[in-house]
Nucleic acid binder design. Structure first.
Lengths: 198, 198
DNA sequence: CGGAATCTTGAAAGTGTTCAAATCAAGTGG
DNA sequence: CCACTTGATTTGAACACTTTCAAGATTCCG
């Protein structure tokens, strides 16, 4: 038998079924309902999550009280407030289920024990973080490079499954503008057959 | 004797002087002059850099031909186009010396050999990437959270050394606005004793 | 000193936001 | 299954923030 986590690990490093089974013991499964928080800004959290099923988002509350979404996680992505998890401090970000979600959780002590027992996992997580870091840099690039309408088009072409699974309000926040403006963009783009205006 | 690289590694993982000396063999030192490129957008690059001395910036050319700076590296930071380095593809970003810089370089094959010979370095780089990823997420947070004037103040308070070492033009680009607007902000802020207007 | 790049200034034009109200969609309890 | 309540999306007008462009002042470096 092969779990999603096992499969994901095996994509990056060679691993035996026995190792995978032992690694799984460091995690515990959990279910979250739509709109439920896995992590809440300002609170202590010491868990890292692997998404087995569902969609999560990370967000925070801006100066003027809006929810600003900064990333999504779908199946086979890792998610947490890394700064809080790593340093054991209160969370800067909240993590919430957008759909009912099924995740694997690992506490900080278990994470340390896991890395000690299976040093090969250092390599796996090195790769995971390297990839996440790269993605985050590209996110910054897109924010600056594209006009808002192009950014919207880019994202909905690149991740159509994500766009379909989330409310527009949250998409607008992720893209960096208001829901009202997203409405206007959609209207404008519809007129132009899905091409940016410029 | 203890090099900056050795010291930085030792901050994260236990390491003997002998190991450190062997690790150093996988790197070669290089000097770059102000404005010289370590990596050029569109070209192949297969090196990762550790900054011993100087300031680097990463940037790309936007749709409308401007240079958009997306991050800096000062002493003890790692820098490269990670996506290009990792996948062996052409670079999306350029990396340039803002001051004369002294760096340690490692090629992709040497990196792989290093990780094979010293698996403990997987842990070190896992930590480095984890930290870089966290920083990148905070960068995105600040972009969305702060008004432009607050973002400017935040950055110049958080990294005064960096601000002093780079031209305003590049700072403006990093913060996400035009040099002209930065001029206005500085004028406005000067009138208000360094506090945001809002 | 001289040339080139950087920084400042101001006016005009865009881009995106805010606010308020109407419409639409979804989930809940009876 | 319907009626109700709540939340999400759309619309439009007024406004605010930021860019663009062009020109002048300043600084840097050889």
């Amino acid at each position: 038998m092969s779990t999603p986590l096992h499969q994901h690990i095996a994509k990056h490093i060679p691993i035996t079924p026995e190792e995978a089974a032992d690694i799984a013991l460091y995690f515990h499964p959990a279910d979250y309902k739509k709109k439920e928080n896995l992590i809440t800004e300002g609170q202590y959290n010491h868990q890292l999550f692997f998404v087995v099923k569902g969609v999560l988002r990370m967000f925070f509350i801006t100066d003027n009280g809006n929810e600003q979404t900064i990333q999504f996680a779908i199946e086979n992505w890792w998610m947490t407030d890394h700064d809080a998890f790593h340093k054991g401090i209160t969370a800067t970000f909240s993590v919430q289920a957008i759909e009912n979600a099924e995740v694997l959780c690992i506490t900080k002590p278990n994470m340390e024990a896991l890395l000690k027992a299976h040093p090969i996992m250092e390599r796996y997580f090195r790769m995971v973080y390297e990839r996440a870091y790269t993605a985050s840099l590209f996110r910054v690039k897109y924010i600056f490079d594209y006009s808002k309408d192009r950014f919207y088009l880019h994202f909905s072409n690149a991740y159509p499954e994500v766009v379909q699974r989330i409310p527009q309000k949250i998409l607008a926040s992720f893209l960096g503008f208001t829901p009202e403006y997203l409405s206007e963009l959609r209207k404008k783009l519809a007129k132009n057959g899905g091409h940016p205006i410029s």
